[in-house]
Computed example of a mutant assay.
Amino acid sequence: MNHDAFELGLDDINNAGVYSVGNQDIGPLSAAMRDAGLRVTTIDLHGCNDKRTLLARIAAQLDFPQSFGGNWDALSDSLRDLSWLQANGYALFFSDADGLREGAEKDFDTFLDVLADASDAWTEQNVPFWAFVALHE
């Protein structure tokens, strides 16, 4: 499957944002994002059912600075910066997010809000920032 099947319109930065996908969609979407010249990172959330684990996994995969504060504000700040990961744009894939959604619904919703805010901030700088959260449903 190519990105056209997802009808994302990769050529329009205003389409960047947060999307729910299935785990099986990560491979084809990752390829499309790489083809579009974006930095692609996949963060495995299997077994992640709390905020602390979520933040630790994101920080590790995105190589956050040691000064990362481990809270929502720090996550927001870090996702809006990413100066240590120079790129023309970003595509983050969060696989197996069902455990987080089921185990910490409020944190899951906050996480989605942080991703959306980061995408909006990058769009204002004319840099695409896509986040794909893979769920079974």
Rank of each mutant, 00 (worst) to 15 (best):
M1R: 13
H3V: 14
D4I: 11
D4Q: 15
A5I: 11
F6P: 05
F6W: 12
L8W: 10
L8F: 11
G9I: 01
D11R: 12
D12W: 04
I13G: 02
I13V: 15
N15C: 03
G17Y: 00
G17Q: 00
V18G: 00
V18W: 00
V21H: 03
N23K: 09
D25F: 04
I26F: 06
I26P: 01
P28T: 09
P28V: 05
P28W: 09
P28Y: 06
P28I: 07
L29N: 08
A31T: 14
M33N: 01
R34T: 12
A36C: 01
L38F: 09
R39G: 05
T41Q: 10
I43G: 05
L45Q: 02
C48L: 00
N49L: 01
N49A: 12
D50A: 09
K51N: 10
R52C: 00
L54S: 01
L55H: 03
A56L: 00
A56Y: 00
A56D: 03
R57K: 11
R57H: 06
L62E: 05
L62A: 08
P65K: 12
Q66C: 06
F68V: 08
F68M: 06
F68H: 03
G70H: 02
N71R: 14
W72V: 03
W72Q: 06
D73P: 00
A74H: 04
A74Y: 02
S76Y: 03
S76Q: 11
D77M: 11
D77V: 10
S78L: 03
S78A: 15
L79S: 02
L79R: 04
R80L: 01
D81G: 11
D81I: 11
L82R: 12
W84K: 15
G89P: 08
G89A: 07
Y90E: 07
Y90Q: 08
L92M: 11
L92D: 00
F93A: 03
F93I: 07
F94K: 05
D96C: 14
A97K: 07
D98Q: 08
D98P: 06
G99L: 08
G99K: 07
L100A: 08
E102I: 12
G103D: 09
G103V: 12
A104F: 10
E105K: 15
F108D: 08
F108W: 10
T110L: 13
T110I: 14
L112F: 02
D113W: 03
V114M: 03
L115D: 05
A116C: 04
D117W: 01
A118L: 02
S119P: 06
S119E: 05
A121E: 14
Q125E: 15
N126G: 10
N126I: 12
V127H: 12
V127F: 04
V127T: 15
V127S: 11
F129E: 02
F129W: 12
F129K: 01
W130N: 07
V133L: 02
A134E: 06
L135M: 12
E137N: 13
